Simulated assay, not measured.
Amino acid sequence: MKNKISLIHGDGGKATNNLINNLFLKYFNNTVLNELNDSALLNINNKKIAYTTDSFVISPIFFNGGDIGKLSICGTVNDLAVSGAKPMYLSSSFIIEEGFSIENLEIIVKSMAETCKKANVQIVAGDTKVVPKGGADGIFINTSGIGFIYDNVNIKASNAEIGDIIIVNGTLGDHGIEIMCERNNLKFYGNLSSDCAPLNFLVGEMLDICPYIHVIRDATRGGLAAVLNEIAEASNISIELEENFIPIKEEVNDACEILGVDPLYLANEGKLCCFVPEKYAYAVLCKMKQHPLGINASIIGKVVAEDSAKVYMNTFIGGKKIIDMPSGYALPRIC
């Protein structure tokens, strides 16, 4: 398998990064792409624009808390929002397997329309392709989006600075554990549900109170662990987390313990982390807590000076634990 693509190349961890750096950047090399932000940050006729694209192949296509349609809109809206942009317009492309239910397709399209309305964006272009039976797994969706970057905002993965306070807007691992249980027909107590949600209005309120936020990222594939390692490498800083402060639902934590997975490595679809200068951190945290998608926001760590870029966590028992970039797939086709 050394010279072939495997599922591990799609998990958002080390194999994904190696594929991007050693193959795609080798041929697509340019200054915009090389920054590897969630969106391309463009300056066109003195207008600052964010542009992004994403594909969605999740299995199952319907799950507690959402479906592939809702997910496709939230994923693209969120990539624009965490880049410091106001999402405006999306395109949507469907690859549909022959024999797919038109009734299910209508449910998905209706879900997309409802999510667009909630996020205040419009789908203004699209495409549909149908492949023979067995040529796809039901339905795949690609969405692209553009938005205008807010004035006086400069958000990049490479902008983290020593002293920055790291905040997440809520509990981690909700989406990943829900999909894992749904796919394997596992039942646990409590209400396991995906956190799939558009974050653009939350981000807008955060930037209203503090346009000086250095980094915002949504923790999707590879979870918080992957995102923090990417930021540490891009900014050449180290990150110190506090395990006591990381918000995780009790039922999610219990399910993770039973299944032997770490919630820090599980995908989220409605969670972000931000790096805020210390003097603005409390104001940003308070503003986040006033929003429905930030009620459980928490300060989880800070940027510290170290000899090499790394992420580590001060544990419950007083030790230190290295949080490395994911190196294997906990769950393929998570988004």
Rank of each mutant, 00 (worst) to 15 (best):
G328N: 14
L71C: 12
G145P: 06
I239T: 08
I209M: 07
N229E: 03
I213W: 00
N253I: 01
E205V: 04
N200I: 04
H214F: 02
G319V: 04
G319C: 01
I295R: 05
K133W: 10
Y150G: 01
G222T: 03
C274K: 06
G163L: 07
V252I: 14
I139W: 02
F94G: 01
Y212L: 11
S6Q: 13
K86M: 12
F188C: 06
H9S: 06
C256P: 02
C196P: 07
D151A: 14
K118I: 03
L228G: 12
A305Q: 11
L186C: 06
A281M: 11
I5E: 01
Q290E: 15
L19R: 08
I146G: 02
P132Q: 11
G163C: 09
A232P: 06
G176A: 08
P247G: 07
Y150N: 02
N191V: 08
E240W: 01
V32I: 15
Y312G: 00
E306I: 02
T53G: 09
K271P: 10
Q290R: 08
M288A: 02
F28S: 07
I8D: 02
N169W: 04
R333H: 13
I209H: 08
E182N: 05
R221S: 11
V203S: 00
K302R: 15
L172Q: 09
A157L: 14
V276L: 03
I123C: 00
V130G: 02
D11E: 12
N253L: 14
T220D: 14
C210F: 04
F140S: 11
I95K: 01
A281Y: 11
V215N: 10
S194G: 05
L7Q: 12
S39P: 06
R333E: 14
V261S: 02
A267L: 07
V130H: 00
S111A: 15
G135N: 05
V121A: 01
Y329H: 09
L105M: 11
V261A: 01
F94N: 01
D11Y: 04
F201S: 09
I49D: 03
G66T: 05
V57W: 05
F201H: 11
N43V: 12
G126A: 04
Y150Q: 05
E103A: 04
I155K: 12
V227S: 15
T31W: 13
Y312V: 07
V57A: 13
N64T: 15
D174E: 09
